Each structure stands twice: as C-alpha cells, then as structure tokens.
Amino acid sequence: MPYVKVCSLADVPADGALAVEVDDTPVALVRSGDEVFALNDICSHAEVSLSEGEVYDGTIECWLHGSCFDLRTGKPTNPPATQPVATYRVKVQDGDVYVSLDGGE
C-alpha cells in the first residue's frame, strides 16, 4: 500500500498523539521530540484508543489501565498488556504526515 496523506505535521501535538484513520484502520500518530510514529490506535489489552494516552520516554501509555507501548516496535513495556500493537511506516514531507499500513512491525 502506498503512503497516504493523513494530516499536517502541525496537527500532531508535540509529545502527544492524534487519532486518524487510514483505509478504515484506526491509527495513533505520535510525536516524540522531532520524530513521528504511527501505531494501531486500539490497545491490545482493553480495546480503547491509545491516542488518548500520554506520551513519554519513547512510549505511549494507555489511559485505562496504564500499559505502555514502545513507539518503535509497538511492544508493551509493562502489564497488563501482553500483546504488541501494529506499527506503521511514517514519512513527513513538506509539512504533511503520510502513513503506509504496509511494512510495519
């Protein structure tokens, strides 16, 4: 699947997350420092939106039960989640953010 333009970089809060959809797939765009990451927006533990959680130390924390997921790999770094969430490729070009659902982890 090719890259799909999802938003302007300015729409993604610094050290925060934004919920978007790419071909009916819920995606959490996460900005951490100068990097932008894309993960499946549904927590693998409780099926709530990860984009509503807090971003820190290279992770995003699920607001419901506190599981954190590594922004690069999607793997949980603490319980109760035990399953990773999908990650997707991101590119930022001319101030816009593009996501490809292919080729992530």
Results as ranks from 00 to 15, higher is better:
1 M>G: 15
1 M>D: 08
2 P>W: 00
2 P>V: 09
4 V>I: 14
5 K>H: 08
5 K>R: 13
5 K>Y: 04
5 K>W: 03
6 V>T: 08
6 V>Q: 09
6 V>L: 12
9 L>R: 05
9 L>M: 09
10 A>D: 13
11 D>K: 10
11 D>L: 11
11 D>R: 02
11 D>Q: 13
12 V>H: 12
13 P>M: 11
15 D>P: 10
15 D>A: 15
15 D>W: 08
16 G>P: 00
16 G>R: 03
18 L>G: 11
18 L>K: 12
18 L>S: 03
21 E>Q: 12
22 V>E: 07
23 D>T: 07
24 D>K: 10
26 P>C: 15
26 P>R: 12
28 A>R: 02
28 A>S: 13
28 A>C: 06
28 A>M: 02
31 R>D: 05
33 G>E: 01
34 D>W: 02
35 E>S: 14
35 E>N: 12
36 V>N: 03
36 V>C: 08
40 N>D: 07
43 C>R: 03
46 A>D: 07
46 A>H: 04
48 V>F: 09
49 S>Q: 09
49 S>P: 04
50 L>S: 10
50 L>M: 10
51 S>P: 05
52 E>F: 12
54 E>H: 06
54 E>D: 14
56 Y>N: 11
56 Y>E: 13
56 Y>F: 07
56 Y>A: 15
57 D>Q: 09
60 I>V: 15
61 E>A: 12
61 E>G: 10
61 E>D: 10
63 W>F: 14
64 L>A: 15
64 L>V: 08
64 L>E: 14
65 H>G: 10
66 G>Y: 05
66 G>M: 05
66 G>K: 01
69 F>L: 05
71 L>C: 10
71 L>F: 04
76 P>L: 07
77 T>D: 08
78 N>L: 07
78 N>C: 08
78 N>P: 04
83 Q>F: 09
83 Q>H: 10
83 Q>P: 04
84 P>I: 02
84 P>N: 06
85 V>K: 00
85 V>Y: 05
86 A>L: 07
88 Y>N: 07
88 Y>R: 00
88 Y>Q: 13
90 V>D: 13
90 V>I: 01
91 K>L: 12
92 V>E: 11
93 Q>W: 01
96 D>E: 14
97 V>G: 12
98 Y>K: 07
99 V>H: 14
100 S>C: 00
101 L>K: 05
101 L>V: 04
102 D>A: 15
102 D>M: 13
103 G>L: 10
103 G>A: 12
103 G>Q: 11
104 G>L: 03
105 E>Y: 10
105 E>N: 15
